[in-house]
Amino acid sequence: MSAAAESSALEQQVWRLLADVPDPEIPVVSIVDLGIVRYVRRDEAGRLHVGITPTYSGCPATAVIRSATRAALDAAGYADALLEEVLAPAWSSDWVTPAGRARLAAFGIAPPQADPVRCPRCGSAATERVSEFGSTPCKAHYRCTQCREPFDRFKCI
């Protein structure tokens, strides 16, 4: 295997590993689903770099995510990998992957997309906003006027 192919195989392996690190607040989605992992790359010296970005400046899950990522890397034998915090470009809910959106919806959280906001339970577009803020920095509070159930919506930012 060439050095480039070997690097790329290793990077793929680390991406798969990180896809198993759950978000501490919404454990049905991983940090890869949420677009928190920005890059995995090997530098010329063979050192592995993993970049993660905070979602909201004050999200209390940020520190937990950092230590869970570190622990996953260490446990898989990448103890010398460098875990880097990336601020720019700022995280966007546009980065939530299609798989992540499907998992959020199945869990009962309306994924971040343009209006209309559909009820994750019955699919109706007859929904209304209760509050722009919810139980975590990334969610707003909605209700369905069709099936009458309240639900969370992942904020678009």
Partner: peptide, 20 residues
């Protein structure tokens, strides 16, 4: 309750910005 949560969310963002 909604405004209580909203103000706490604003506080969290602001303190996060302050930390950076």
């Amino acid at each position: 309750l909604e405004e209580d949560l909203a103000l706490a969310n604003l506080a969290l963002d602001l303190i996060g910005q302050a930390r950076l």
